[in-house]
Computed example of a mutant assay.
Amino acid sequence: MRIVFMGTPAFAVPPLDALARAGHEIAAVVAQPDRPAGRGQALREPATKAWAREHGVPVLQPVKVRDGSLARELAQLRPDLLAVAAYGRILGRDLLELAPHGALNVHGSLLPKYRGAAPIQWAIAEGEAETGVSIMQMDEGLDTGDVLLQRVLPIGPDDTSETLAPRLAALGGEALVAALALLAAGELVPVRQDGTRATLARILEKEDGRVDWTVRARRIRDRLRAFTPWPGATTTLEGRSVKLLEVVEDPAAAAAAPDAPGAAAVVPGRGVAVRCGEGTALLVTRLQPEGKPPQAAVDFANGLRRRTFTFGT
């Protein structure tokens, strides 16, 4: 098929590459504009733009996508299909209906669960044991279109958003290629989503990373994994921020931690035991105090010169 691909970050590259390797013609790549990034705030190009440049594919980076100009430009390319993966913009009807086969989206969850911008993070944060990808026929709603194909992927107990995303992206590429083969054979069966089972995976905010020591230890650990690398899991000590980097659920932590949520005690040679909600506890093994490099929690506690202290809630 002749395809216009719309996607921006690294998550979109495996589906784009899979289409090309499967023999589909990529007529153009549409990505968001270059954005400032890093300490120097130098402009950084999207990952899909870098792929397109390496493969000699034209790139479009429109500032606006709902004023009709992008649809007019893409119509001249006469694509059979728009393939979308993490483009980051809501498409209007002019784009959704531009190609004979419409627009297919690679979404990083098992719809209707986790509709929205951060499905990978929220699946981990909510303690899911598995997630997956959905190939969806796009409509004007937020991930509400008919599901064409799904693939399931387990979430490992130590997975973070950073480790899970590349696996989901690769699976998304495989699923997209499989869906297009079924589409060409007339064998795709659209399945309407049950909106009553839908959950929202909203955009992450910095405040999501604040640790609430009154909830169970497992939930705190799940959120730390989900929000790695951003916004992380952050608490406070004596008015200064402390970022948790590694925590484990350990029986020794439950025995050593004081009773109040956030109260901590040093476990010699192991880390810092912190009391969480409902009698649970976590052993913090690595952390990063504000303005300092990452360090072992034991070293951090030794620097405080006391065995017990209390993190903020």
Results as ranks from 00 to 15, higher is better:
L77H: 09
V267W: 00
A281S: 10
L153M: 09
A118D: 10
G186V: 15
T160Y: 04
V191M: 15
D139T: 14
V63S: 13
R72M: 15
A181L: 15
T48A: 06
R216Y: 06
S241I: 04
P289F: 03
G127I: 04
D146N: 15
V272Y: 02
V189T: 13
G232L: 04
E140P: 13
W230D: 11
V84G: 03
G209D: 02
A178Y: 01
R223N: 04
V65F: 10
A185P: 06
L168W: 01
Q41Y: 12
A198V: 03
T8Q: 02
E126A: 11
L204D: 09
A103P: 05
L164S: 05
M136R: 03
A260M: 15
D250E: 13
R202Q: 11
I90V: 12
L19Y: 02
D67V: 12
T48K: 00
M1Y: 02
A85V: 07
G145Y: 07
R44Y: 07
G277S: 09
A12V: 08
A165K: 05
L60A: 10
A175L: 04
G127S: 04
Q288N: 10
R192D: 07
L304I: 10
L282H: 06
V247T: 11
V191S: 13
L171C: 02
Y87H: 08
Q288R: 08
L188N: 04
R202S: 07
E246G: 06
L188K: 02
L183A: 12
A99N: 12
T196I: 01
P190G: 14
D143Q: 12
Q193V: 03
R219Q: 11
V247C: 07
Q193M: 04
E238A: 13
L82R: 00
A75D: 13
R151A: 12
T234F: 01
A42T: 15
Q76E: 14
M6V: 06
A47Y: 00
A71M: 14
A255P: 08
M6N: 05
L204R: 09
P58T: 03
G271W: 00
A129H: 12
A118K: 09
L81D: 07
L183N: 14
D259H: 14
A297G: 11
T144W: 09
A18C: 09
R286E: 13
L182Y: 02
A10Y: 00
G271C: 04
T285G: 05
G7S: 09
R44Q: 15
D208K: 04
V248Q: 15
H24F: 05
Q61I: 05
R307P: 07
A273F: 02
L287Q: 01
V189D: 15
G312R: 02
D143K: 13
Q288E: 12
V266W: 06
